[in-house]
Structure formats: structure tokens, C-alpha cells
Design a protein around this nucleic acid. Structure first.
Lengths: 264, 264
DNA sequence: CAGTGGTCTAGACCACGCT
DNA sequence: GCGTGGTCTAGACCACTGT
């Protein structure tokens, strides 16, 4: 009841004050914010109100709190850039080296992330399933067709980086090396895999959006609170015929997607 | 103390149960969830714990709560698609109609959103400023150069749809019709504007990421809690020379960005 | 008017990190 | 062992929505 100021709720005014301190640079990135007890004293509020203020800033992705340690300004390590040009590079490598089993030391993933081939590994499970409707549609599959669903979790720099689920028509890949998980990671990536089947990818379509992660995604990607995920629905086509569809989920604090649109 | 189950916090177990009901379709989109009082009775928890459970689901973007009414499953109206092909269409229109003052009834914005020309309007403020560092760099400007900063808020279907700030080198546009806010909205969009200066845009670069909205963005775009924004940094170039840079912010529940990558 | 979510208080126990 | 954030309780007043 002391000062109504703008009649905004108390916890929002506290949050606004702390936000301003962070944005003004009064507290460095990684630096400590007042403990909840200090907040109670400084603003003469209850602990609940102090916590509500911090909850707001947590949801904005501005702060991190560590049990037993304190509350800190979140650091923003430079994001890696994922360029649409990566697909062009894959095509060129295949042209140069062919589709033989020679190890090509680059995939779109390793190149874009500046990660050496040896550095990353992936968790994977393959299964044969009837595809979700939107996948069947994306692949222009006749009804009741089956697909090979390949689930990947990419790790690099000792952190999980992305989840992707790739769908291939079962007719296409059954009894081929592609259907064998032991051949992963496959040098040269998806485009190289399709090349071994005689399919030359001429177009990649990507649809990008964003949302908050599911609890499962938060767990496997170790996403801090207040950080959304980018979702990419990708199709690889030869002419107008799609041969692969994928759903990709990437924490948005780890990546920037670069697209170049040439207007001839 | 009754059942430790998995020793997960109480409010998370309540949240998990409610999440499952929603995902299993037991509660329709837009349908009501138990009131906080009902939650207290059903799970034998305090009101704080009930509210904490709902806070989790709110942060996930799963639910909306309306004061005096109740808690509801969030609806997901179909998102509009923003295609990278829109820039190609602008180029074609300019080729067909020239850069005369004839009203071209299409801009990248109206086309992609399926919104008629008359339906939308924009709030705008123009100002001459020294650009932020990353903008000066994006435009390859010599130091101490000034830019024209144009701030837009696009509205359509009686909802705000996007914020964009466009930067143009002041040398380029000073004393031209482009620097006059009264000429907005400009038929044909940015590419048409640059065409009047004799600049043919040959390439558009877009860098996409995502984050939680700032309080200001939440207010002007009326973004519900648990919904991130997509951020697009755009450059328009002729050859390798950039002529426009823009920062675009779009609520992620209103759009899907489509990119086509042609591999010659 | 009764019921709803939003805000705020005071107090308690816990696991954790640090010294 | 002390301070930290995380969890949980009980209780209160408010503005708002519905009837």
C-alpha cells in the first residue's frame, strides 16, 4: 500500500526494476542478482512476491536460478549458424567424391556447426511405422504405406544440439544400407544416402516455426526455462517428388538459421 | 506424504496429469479445465500447488486462463504461411507493371497472409539515427553514417501481426519519396521502393531465430503467455552490396516460414 | 450474488552449495 | 552450519464474469 505508482502489481514492478538493471548493464551477464531474502528486504515484499518477480524474468529467459547458489543473469554464448547453403555443399562433395564408401569428412551438420567429424556422436533408433498424416501427405504416399522412421539426437561439444526424426518410404529403403542403423553416422548426410539409391535431390523445402519445448524435449535437449525451440519441417525432393521428410527440433539459443533467396 | 509415486514434486505430477488429459483429447481445444478450487479438492492440494501446476502449463503455451471465467485449453488457429517465394513475386510484378505510381495490389505481406490490400493498415514512425552496430555492419556502412529507421506495426484481421524496423542508408533515400511516411503503405513493398532508385534487388538474406518476447512486444503484439516470437534479420542486396536491413518480430503462433532451397 | 483467477502475506521444511 | 532456491500450506482481499 505504500506507493501505488502506476497501480501495476507489486511483483511486476519489482520485475521491471530488476529487468532494467540487467538491460542497463548494472549486472553483468553471468553476474549475481539479489537473493530472494535480499529482495524481500530491499522492496519490503513477501517471499512469494519476490519469487513471482523472478518467475517473470525466468519465463522471459533473462535469468537462471541455481538451487543453493543464487540467481544469475543468463549468458548468451554466440549461436551457431545453420546455413541453407549446407545442402549445396553436400551436393558438391558428392559430385567430387562420388557415393562410394570413402569417408567424406563433412555433413551439413558438422560443417555448419564447425564441429570435427570425430567430435560428435548420435543416439539413434530406427523403426518401421505407419506415418503420421502430415508426414504421409508431405511424402505424397499412397494410403497404408509404411515408412522407415529414424530418430536421432545429435550431440556436440558435450551438449545435445538437436532432435530429428527422418521419414523415408519403406519401399525405397528396405534391405538397403540406409535401413541399417550401424551405418550411421553416414558421411555426407541424407543427400548422399539418397544418391546411393540413384536419387539426385534437386530441392529442399524447409518450414520453420517456433514453440515452447515439451517436457520430454526439455529433458533430452537440456533446455533452460524461458527458451523456445525452433521447429523445422524439411522435405527433400527430386523434381516434384518428395523422397524424405524430417521433423527437426533445435533449442533456439543454440542456433541461427540462415537462408539465401536468389532473385535470378 | 500420501503417495510419493516417483518423488516428483506434487505440482509437477498434477501438471503432468492435466497435460495428459489435454493431449489425450479428454478436454477439447477451447474447452474448460478444472477450476483451481476443483483442483484443490480433486488432488488434495493447496491452492498454491494447484496454481503452480497451471503455471507450468501456461509457460508451455498449453492453456489460457481468463480472470473470472476459468482455465481453458489454448486453441491453435491455422498459422499463415510466409513463403520466401514472395520476393520473387514482387520482382515479377515490378517487371510487369514498372515502378510507376500505379497501385500494385500486392506486397509480400498481403500476398502471403491472404489479406486483401484494403484490409490492413500500419502504424509507422520514421526517424534518422546512427544505426546499431550490427545494422551498420549488415549494411557495410562507413562509420558515422546515418540511416533512416522506419518502424512499422502491421495489423490485419483486427490483430497485430508483426513488428518490423527497416534501415536504409540515409545517403540513399534522403529527399526521396521513400523517406516520406505519407507514402506508406507503398505498393509492391521494399523491392519496389528500391527499384524507384534504380536498384534491382538480386538477393535477400534472412537469418531466423526465436526467443521469448520482451514485455513491450507482448503488449503491442498481444502475445499470450507461453508463446515465443520468431525473429528475422533480413538484408536486401544487389550483387554483394546490401541496401536494406530489417529486424522483424512475429509471434510464432501466427506464422510458418517457408523456404525453398534449389540445388540447381 | 457466487465463483473465478490474480495478487499478497506469513510461515514451514527440504536439498543443495559453499566455507 | 548457514544461506540459497524449491516446494507446500493456510488464509486473505481484490476485480472480474456470470446469473
Amino acid at each position: 500500500m505504500p506507493e501505488p505508482t502506476t497501480s501495476q502489481p507489486l511483483y511486476l514492478r519489482v520485475a521491471a526494476e530488476l529487468r532494467q538493471r540487467v538491460l542497463a548493464g548494472l549486472v553483468k551477464a553471468g553476474g549475481p542478482l539479489p537473493s530472494e531474502t535480499e529482495l524481500m528486504n530491499e522492496f519490503n515484499v513477501s517471499r512469494t512476491t519476490a519469487r513471482n518477480a523472478y518467475n517473470v524474468l525466468r519465463a522471459e529467459g533473462l535469468i537462471d536460478s541455481q538451487p543453493g547458489r543464487g540467481v544469475f543473469v543468463r549468458e548468451h554464448p554466440p549461436a551457431r549458424r545453420l546455413s541453407s547453403e549446407r545442402y549445396r555443399r553436400e551436393i558438391e562433395q558428392i559430385r567430387r567424391h562420388g557415393t562410394s564408401s570413402t569417408r567424406i569428412p563433412e555433413t551439413s551438420f558438422t560443417h555448419d556447426h564447425g564441429i570435427a567429424w570425430e567430435e560428435y556422436h548420435l543416439a539413434k533408433t530406427f523403426e518401421v511405422v505407419t506415418p503420421p498424416d502430415h508426414i504421409a501427405e508431405a511424402l505424397k504416399l499412397p494410403s497404408h504405406s509404411m515408412v522407415l522412421a529414424r530418430h536421432f539426437v545429435f550431440h556436440a561439444r558435450s551438449r545435445p544440439q538437436q532432435i530429428s526424426t527422418s521419414y523415408l518410404p519403406l519401399d525405397l529403403v528396405q534391405n538397403t544400407p540406409i535401413a541399417n542403423p550401424d551405418n550411421e553416422p553416414w558421411p555426407g548426410g541424407n543427400i548422399a544416402q539418397l544418391a546411393t539409391l540413384g536419387i539426385t535431390v534437386t530441392r529442399v523445402d524447409e518450414s520453420v516455426s517456433s514453440r515452447m519445448p515439451t517436457p520430454g524435449e526439455s529433458r533430452t535437449l537440456r533446455i533452460p526455462s524461458g527458451v523456445p525451440v525452433l521447429t523445422i519441417s524439411r522435405r527433400m525432393l527430386a523434381g516434384d517428388q518428395p523422397f524424405e521428410a524430417a521433423e527437426i527440433v533445435i533449442p533456439s539459443d543454440r542456433v541461427i538459421l540462415d537462408y539465401t533467396i536468389a532473385l535470378d
